[in-house]
Design a protein around this nucleic acid. Structure first.
Length: 363
DNA sequence: TCTCCTCGAGATCT
DNA sequence: CTCGAGGAGA
């Protein structure tokens, strides 16, 4: 019965080395209708387990068959166990104000939160870290991120799965592996947390899309062109499409502005607020076109045609970047041409090129 | 241009 | 619950 929103702590993307790992077993998936059967917790300091907590919780009705099949917990095992009030009180004392860590830990916290509020009148406001959330970020290509998938991925051995303490131990090992993997991949934990903390990760920021290419076909229609996407692309992720634009020497952008040269239309059908009409980007683009802006609106398929044509016909390639960027007044002080290998700089270089008589700077 | 809001899709816990 | 998408509004 959580009509009132739970006032939980912060859901953090970070790797504390002092925390309490938790796991519970319940009679089902709903914190509203189901009950806790077992609570397990490990206290960790400097990444080492220094204490543990285990408690069954008395249950005055028959445990569903599938739960016993899953966890091995039977009513007989709970005879003489602490009642819910006693169990949550003991757990609460063990937890203190530690950071909570677990696997899909919102599940566990929600149950514990309701128990704590109901029996102790205390809200669990501890900050927490969800290993599953981190696993998804670190291994986005894995098909699934269930606890058992991570156990398999990291070759972790587990004694009695789906029992509170055993799952805590497994999750701790997973947590340690994730920590190591984050360091190996991102150099250090701070970098990982920066990359994935909130906005940076959510927002597809066109300005951050770079290319490794050092040679461009300057005759290609996308070269030096500012490209904006609207709607969902059918055959491609928008991020990948932007990457391709960048690889052609184009400049992916977030919004339609006076600089925009291409607006690529994806599918807006799914968007209820648009209802088959036009996105604001498209409206703005049409307005700019009517004012004579150098902008055209193309469909997703037109865009693919532009991509496919790449490599065919005559190619004018830039041999070195310095030939282009060295001529760009804004960046000519830059001694290292590679530093100029940014989409913004190419746009400026391209504008500069337009103002020159002919492509002396290209060959 | 930037920040915040809303919606839908998808996945995980026992 | 998270996350990705577009839109509204300052």
């Amino acid at each position: 019965m959580s009509m009132i929103k739970r006032e939980k702590g912060k859901n953090m993307i970070s790797f504390p080395n002092e925390y309490v790992m938790i796991d519970i077993e319940t009679t089902g998936l709903s914190s509203e209708w189901d009950d806790i059967l077992e609570i397990g917790a490990l206290k960790v300091k400097n990444n080492e387990i220094i204490d543990s907590f285990q408690s069954f919780v008395a249950c005055d009705y028959e445990i569903p068959e599938e739960i016993t099949a899953l966890t091995g917990i039977t009513n007989e095992m709970l005879v003489g166990a602490p009642d819910p009030a006693e169990a949550i009180k003991n757990f609460s004392a063990f937890l203190g104000d530690s950071i909570i860590i677990g696997y899909n830990v919102n599940f566990d916290i929600n149950f514990l939160y309701d128990y704590s509020e109901k029996y102790l009148g205390i809200k669990i406001r501890n900050d927490y870290v969800d290993c599953m959330r981190i696993a998804r970020k670190l291994f986005p290509d894995e098909p699934h991120h269930r606890l058992k998938d991570m156990i398999k991925l990291f070759n972790i051995s587990i004694n009695s799965s789906h029992r509170a303490i055993a799952d805590c131990e497994a999750t701790k090992q997973i947590y340690d592996k994730l920590y190591q993997f984050a360091i190996d991949t991102y150099g250090n934990i701070e970098e990982f947390c920066n990359v994935f903390s909130r906005k940076k990760y959510y927002e597809l920021n066109a300005g951050e899309i770079k290319t490794n290419k050092t040679e461009f076909d300057i005759s290609h229609p996308l070269f030096g062109k500012v490209c904006v996407f609207t709607g969902k692309l059918e055959k491609m992720e928008r991020r990948n499409a932007m990457q391709i634009v960048a690889d052609f020497g184009g400049i992916p952008d977030n919004n339609v502005t006076r600089r925009t040269n291409y607006l690529i239309l994806g599918n807006n059908d799914y968007c209820t607020t648009i209802k088959g009409g036009k996105s604001t980007k498209q409206k703005k683009a049409e307005e700019l076109i009517s004012k004579g802006s150098d902008l055209i609106i193309i469909t997703e398929n037109d865009f693919y045609d532009l991509i496919i044509s790449y490599g065919e016909g005559e190619e004018l390639k830039l041999k070195t970047n310095s030939d282009v960027f060295g001529c760009c007044s804004k960046y000519k002080e830059c001694s290292d041409a590679k530093k100029c290998l940014r989409t913004d700089d190419r746009a400026n270089a391209c504008l500069y090129r337009k103002n020159l008589e002919n492509g002396k700077i290209f060959y």
